[in-house]
Amino acid sequence: MFTGIIEDLGKIEKLDKDEGNLHITVKTSITNELKIDQSVAHNGVCLTVIAIDGSSYTVTAIKETLDKTNLSHLTKQSTVNIERAMKLGDRLDGHIVQGHVDQTASCINITEEDGSWVFTFKYDKSLNNVTIEKGSITINGVSLTVLNSEIDKFSVAIIPYTYNHTTFNNLKIGDIVNLEFDVIGKYVKRLNDLRI
């Protein structure tokens, strides 16, 4: 379980393909606090630490994960948002995030608005995910509030702190991001669909 509050930015040091899997080696300032078998979110994707070497650690993404997320677009020197799993008893500063990406979206607009930024994303509505105005959304692991909710697109406002401490400062129009829709909203939608 995660909160969507990014702890650090990780730099991709190595990508090793192993049949359908991808071993991803990441360098972060928090590597010395990690342990093997620990869950860490990478752009919102929960992956298990399988090796640690100095200031770097390695995780493995399976084919299904690569097919459903933007991790297959990583290159050496890419930067990813990093968050360790929350501790029981900690404050929940973001919202409930599982680290299970529902689908990807494309950034279709970026507007600077008097010291903050508004990013707009378009996603495939055929997968039946929904956003709601002022509801929660996780983009590349970052917990955010939805603006301008439509059937297949939405916007988020990014404050300077978030812009400077996450990968939002590298995001360009056309880039693919990972989306995890609000878990409570997903259950409510599923129950509502079952009644029809």
Rank of each mutant, 00 (worst) to 15 (best):
T104A: 04
A105C: 00
C107T: 14
C107W: 02
I108C: 00
I108K: 05
I108D: 05
N109H: 11
N109G: 04
N109L: 09
I110Y: 08
I110D: 02
I110G: 01
T111K: 15
T111M: 10
T111W: 03
E112R: 11
E113P: 06
E113T: 09
E113G: 02
D114I: 13
G115P: 07
G115W: 09
G115S: 13
G115Y: 12
S116W: 14
W117Q: 06
W117S: 08
V118S: 12
V118I: 15
V118Y: 08
V118E: 13
V118P: 02
F119S: 10
F119P: 07
T120R: 15
F121C: 01
F121W: 10
F121Y: 13
K122I: 10
K122Y: 09
Y123N: 14
Y123P: 00
D124C: 06
D124S: 06
D124R: 09
K125E: 15
K125F: 13
K125Y: 15
K125M: 14
S126V: 13
S126L: 12
L127V: 01
L127W: 07
N128C: 08
N128P: 01
N128I: 04
N129C: 11
N129R: 14
N129P: 00
N129E: 12
V130L: 11
V130Y: 08
T131C: 14
T131P: 02
K134E: 14
K134L: 14
G135K: 02
S136D: 08
S136A: 14
S136M: 10
I137E: 00
I137H: 01
I137T: 03
T138I: 07
T138S: 09
I139A: 04
I139W: 06
N140D: 08
N140W: 01
G141P: 01
G141W: 02
G141M: 01
G141I: 00
V142P: 06
V142K: 04
V142I: 12
V142E: 04
S143L: 08
L144Y: 12
L144V: 10
L144C: 11
L144E: 12
L144Q: 13
T145H: 08
T145Y: 06
T145C: 05
T145G: 04
T145P: 00
V146Y: 03
V146Q: 03
V146T: 03
L147I: 02
L147A: 07
L147K: 09
L147Q: 05
N148K: 11
E150G: 01
E150L: 13
E150F: 13
E150T: 13
E150P: 02
D152Q: 05
D152P: 08
D152G: 00
K153W: 14
K153I: 00
K153Y: 15
F154Y: 13
F154T: 02
F154I: 03
S155C: 04
S155P: 01
V156M: 01
V156L: 06
V156D: 09
A157G: 13
I158M: 05
I158F: 09
I158A: 05
I158Y: 09
I159L: 11
I159M: 13
I159W: 08
I159R: 08
I159D: 10
P160D: 12
P160F: 06
Y161R: 10
T162I: 14
T162K: 03
Y163F: 15
N164A: 11
N164L: 10
N164W: 07
N164C: 00
H165M: 05
H165C: 04
H165E: 10
H165G: 06
T166S: 03
T166F: 05
T166N: 04
T166P: 03
T166L: 07
T166A: 07
T166V: 06
T167N: 06
T167S: 00
